[in-house]
Design a protein around this nucleic acid. Structure first.
Lengths: 212, 212
DNA sequence: ATTATAATCTAACAATCATTAGATTGTTGA
DNA sequence: TCAACAATCTAATGATTGTTAGATTATAAT
């Protein structure tokens, strides 16, 4: 017969499975990448800078806890988040870590070589200015991530193509660039490039996942 | 010189530290207990059904990631959550686990021998009825946890003392009992006892942490 | 059919973690 | 000062996890 203690142990054990699944830097990075768009193993491995074998092993673990789902499409197997709740979870644990760990705050301060940030607590203001055309919001992630979901009024301007498409951007208005989120350096690079070319550019730290 | 990749690795590493800290059933149980009230190591060990040595080791880990704080009070060392965000994190990861893991849903179904639940999406309704006196809300956790924080209009009726204090409860109104949360069996036990004595009693699954 | 590609499976290693026992520290009250 | 108590530290163990290499599976293109 199962005692109350056995039952409780089993319950906490299950929650711990989810936490264990998230308790690896590379798995967290994979989750963040999947917050942007569904992707094949090869792409995930390249973007997270690990071998395909290792990516496959980590994805298997994430699939076992049903945080992600997989589907074959021709030669590739496409992974995606199993639910929006997983994206919300990623954002929350990142915020908690930023809040609790001095070391993370320090690392992020070090990272911010570009100090030209769009500082505004309320995203509504940005939204309003983007709508009125007072600012131009550009999404510098790869095109397929833009297509999978993007901020309202944003233009797709992948970092790799930005240099060749500068003529599409106005010099008289402020350009606000965003990417995958606060751990991603693409928008910082974009702002550096734009400012060097004489544009008025600011960086938005948040990505699509943070706009829930 | 630090490459972009080194920086990113360090960032995810820090978030993973938080996840690792939560990736143990016993540490999760300790966090849930600390959501109720600050407690001494001895008390935590007893309530989580582990040795004091083990509790101490787990608490050390939680302290290292600044999820909990410790303070000496005489002979005892009292632990408490370092922030309300930790309680919110516990509730969210528990909900995510419930949502994703079939095994957890199954275990919780098995647990619910008492099927007399207060079913209501909006807590406002309960609040209104508690205010008007239409239902009596009782908190069956130990007295000190009630003192550390409880639902509005709730009466403290610790499970251990409930039997001796039945005369303080009305037979003509519905009694709603709550405890530490969905993983806690105290309110179920309370409802069983009350119904056996001829009261109209219902169980509320959520605890104080869930009412954020 | 054969070959190339994408991904997984298997087995192995080292690294990390959970748990326990025994010794130690800090505090209170006699 | 001493004994009792609460909690931690140290060291050792067995179990789990991360990572890699090599073999294997499934699909698409030739």
């Amino acid at each position: 017969m199962k005692t109350n203690r056995d039952i409780k142990n089993a319950l906490y054990e299950q929650v711990a499975r989810i936490a264990k699944s998230a308790a690896s830097p590379k798995r967290l990075e994979l989750i963040e990448l999947l917050c942007q768009a569904p992707k094949a193993v090869e792409v995930l491995a390249r973007e997270a800078n690990i071998s395909m074998k290792l990516a496959s092993a980590h994805l298997k673990e994430l699939k076992a806890t049903r945080l992600v789902e997989a589907e074959r499409q021709g030669k590739n197997i496409i992974y995606r988040l199993a639910s929006d709740d997983v994206a919300r979870f990623w954002v929350q644990i990142r915020l908690l870590a930023e809040d609790r760990l001095f070391e993370l705050q320090e690392a992020m301060r070090e990272m911010r070589t570009v100090s030209h940030e769009w500082v505004s607590k309320n995203h509504d203001e940005l939204l309003k200015k983007a709508k009125s055309g007072e600012v131009v919001v550009i999404d510098v992630r790869p095109g397929n991530e833009f297509e999978a979901g993007h901020l309202p009024f944003a233009l797709s301007m992948p970092l790799a193509e930005l240099k060749d498409r500068l003529s599409h951007l106005p010099k008289d208005r402020t350009i606000v660039a965003y990417c995958r989120g606060p751990f991603c350096l693409m928008s910082a690079d974009a702002v550096k490039l734009l400012r060097a070319e004489g544009f008025k550019a600011l960086q938005l730290r948040d990505g699509v996942a943070e706009w829930l």
